[in-house]
């Protein structure tokens, strides 16, 4: 993406005035190239995250322990696919092609949420993901529903509604496990222990270390900083953890009377950057799974294209024949 395009100062000023006036930017409006490229980056990462996110959860569909849970999980994973499709389409309003974006993912050039590079190892992980991962996503997306780019903001409104259902079902799984047999409760706690810190990392690095944040906030794509959103998530979640009689794996956790915030111990940013840079437990597996599906599906896509072309040819031939017949009649 170009980062050094010289923008027309008058148009740029007009654009920034619209942002300042909280006006929604729509696909046909003029926008700085950098705004467009930042949105493409952010929206396509979001879409990739939905699609890659189908894998860790899909891992438990065939083992869900009741038909009700199996149906809920299927519906949830289906929703994630729908979100991916919806956001890819939203990204296309910025003049990019979905197939190119998918290719970037397959080539390992595009990022997606690092959280999906962690494995799902027990049924409780389906609860933890719904509760914590979708919960963190909601905090982030509620903010993005007010983003300055109209198609993205509207997509977030719709997606947030479904994510709320996802979060509820996840929390319900954890609550049920927690009041279940000792083995079930241990399963829930063990899962929370593994997912707690990675879910806090979902909000991205501390504000002082976040390279894209300033620009995104200046242009009204993001409305709150990584640390503000993370704190909001922590405050919401600690109360929920206590309500189902589990504990977070953080000996330093304390309540700060003055601010009303729960303050966690230090986040392991080495782990965060390690996973972002490709060295998480499942980075290789996730991309390999996407590549395999794409490669194995190639003949299907080719068949669909070939058939569509035949249909078009046949339709044209029919139209030509009809026109010829019409001309003869005259």
């Amino acid at each position: 993406m170009t980062g050094t395009v010289a923008e027309d100062p008058a148009r740029l000023a007009e654009f920034e005035a619209r942002i300042a006036a909280d006006q929604s930017i729509e696909p046909k409006d003029w926008m700085p190239e950098r705004y467009r490229s930042q949105l493409v980056r952010m929206m396509s990462q979001h879409a990739h995250s939905e699609v890659v996110g189908m894998l860790p959860e899909g891992n438990w569909i065939t083992r869900a322990p009741s038909l009700r849970r199996k149906m809920i999980l299927l519906a949830k994973v289906q929703d994630e696919g729908g979100h991916g499709l919806y956001i890819y389409c939203g990204t296309e309003t910025l003049g990019v092609d979905r197939h190119d974006l998918v290719q970037q993912l397959l080539d390992g050039k595009a990022k997606y949420s690092s959280i999906f590079n962690y494995p799902t190892l027990s049924w409780a992980d389906i609860g933890a993901i719904g509760w914590l991962v979708d919960g963190a996503a909601i905090v982030n997306q509620t903010m993005l529903a007010k983003a300055s780019y109209g198609p993205y903001a509207r997509a977030m409104v719709r997606i947030c509604k479904e994510e709320n259902f996802h979060k509820r079902q996840g929390y319900e799984i954890m609550a049920t496990l927690s009041r279940g047999t000792p083995a079930q409760k241990a399963m829930a706690q063990e899962s929370l222990n593994r997912w707690w810190w990675p879910s806090l990392m979902m909000f991205g690095p501390h504000d002082k270390d976040s390279s894209n944040s300033d620009e995104l906030m200046k242009w009204g794509v993001k409305r709150k900083s990584n640390d503000e959103l993370r704190q909001r998530f922590i405050n919401l979640t600690i109360a929920q953890v206590k309500a189902i009689d589990l504990t977070v794996p953080d000996p330093d956790l304390r309540y700060d009377e003055a601010s009303g915030d729960w303050i966690t111990g230090p986040i392991d940013w080495d782990e965060f950057w390690r996973v972002v840079k490709g060295n998480g437990p499942c980075n290789g597996e996730r991309i390999a799974a996407r590549r395999k599906a794409h490669a194995e599906g190639e003949w299907v896509r080719e068949a669909a294209t070939a058939f569509a072309e035949k249909q078009q040819r046949d339709n044209r031939a029919t139209t030509d024949t009809q026109q010829t017949a019409g001309a003869t009649d005259e």
Partner: peptide
């Protein structure tokens, strides 16, 4: 059908197959 989830040839089919699996398991339920 649910075994396809996340592995279909195109995203539209991931969604369609998950939906069909959901219908069938709903009927079974």
């Amino acid at each position: 059908t649910s075994e396809w989830c996340g592995h279909a040839p195109i995203l539209e089919e991931d969604i369609a197959l998950a939906n069909i699996a959901l219908d069938l398991i709903g009927q079974a339920n």
